[in-house]
Amino acid sequence: RGITCLDHENEKVNMYCVSDDQLICALCKLVGRHRDHQVASLNDR
């Protein structure tokens, strides 16, 4: 089922925000508060 995003409840987390040490979803990176932050794919970890 996967872990859902805290900010976007219908989205699954699939990225890690290095700047905030937090799991995020694609919407967080595209339009959310993490858009200018350094992120890594969970597949890279």
Rank of each mutant, 00 (worst) to 15 (best):
R1K: 05
R1Y: 00
R1I: 06
R1V: 06
G2R: 10
G2W: 03
G2H: 02
G2V: 05
G2E: 14
I3R: 09
I3C: 08
I3N: 15
T4Y: 14
T4C: 06
T4W: 05
T4H: 09
T4G: 05
C5P: 01
C5F: 00
C5Q: 01
C5G: 02
L6F: 10
L6P: 15
L6R: 14
D7K: 04
D7C: 06
D7L: 07
D7M: 05
D7H: 11
D7E: 12
H8D: 03
H8T: 01
H8P: 03
H8S: 01
H8G: 01
H8M: 01
H8K: 01
E9G: 11
E9N: 13
E9I: 07
E9W: 05
E9P: 15
N10I: 06
N10Y: 05
N10S: 07
N10H: 10
N10E: 01
N10P: 03
E11M: 06
E11F: 05
E11S: 05
E11I: 03
K12C: 03
K12M: 11
K12R: 10
K12G: 08
K12S: 14
K12L: 10
K12Q: 08
V13L: 09
V13G: 07
V13Q: 10
V13R: 09
V13T: 06
N14T: 13
N14Q: 14
N14K: 12
M15V: 04
M15K: 06
M15Q: 15
Y16T: 03
Y16M: 04
Y16C: 06
Y16S: 06
Y16W: 10
C17Y: 01
C17V: 02
C17F: 14
C17L: 00
V18C: 12
V18P: 11
V18L: 11
V18Q: 15
S19K: 10
D20G: 01
D20F: 00
D20N: 02
D21Q: 07
D21W: 00
D21A: 09
D21L: 01
Q22W: 02
Q22E: 08
Q22M: 13
Q22C: 04
Q22V: 11
Q22P: 03
Q22T: 10
Q22I: 04
L23D: 13
I24G: 04
I24E: 07
I24R: 03
C25R: 00
C25Y: 00
C25W: 00
C25S: 00
C25K: 00
A26S: 11
A26D: 14
A26Q: 11
L27W: 07
L27S: 13
L27Y: 04
L27K: 15
L27M: 11
C28K: 00
C28V: 00
C28E: 00
K29H: 10
K29E: 10
K29P: 10
K29A: 13
K29F: 07
K29Q: 11
L30M: 11
L30Y: 09
V31T: 14
V31R: 10
V31F: 10
V31N: 15
V31G: 14
V31D: 11
V31H: 14
V31S: 13
V31E: 15
G32H: 06
G32W: 00
R33N: 08
R33T: 11
R33A: 13
R33H: 10
H34K: 03
R35F: 01
R35M: 11
R35K: 12
D36E: 12
D36W: 04
D36A: 04
D36C: 04
D36S: 07
D36I: 03
D36F: 02
H37T: 04
H37Y: 02
H37P: 01
H37M: 01
H37W: 02
H37G: 04
H37S: 02
H37I: 00
Q38P: 09
Q38A: 08
Q38M: 05
Q38C: 07
V39L: 09
V39H: 13
V39T: 13
V39M: 07
V39P: 05
A40F: 06
A40E: 13
A40G: 11
S41C: 09
S41I: 02
S41F: 03
S41W: 02
S41A: 09
S41G: 11
S41K: 08
S41T: 11
L42P: 03
L42V: 11
L42S: 12
L42Q: 07
L42N: 12
L42D: 10
L42A: 14
L42Y: 08
L42R: 09
L42F: 07
N43T: 12
N43V: 10
D44F: 03
R45H: 15
R45K: 12
R45L: 05
R45P: 12
R45F: 15
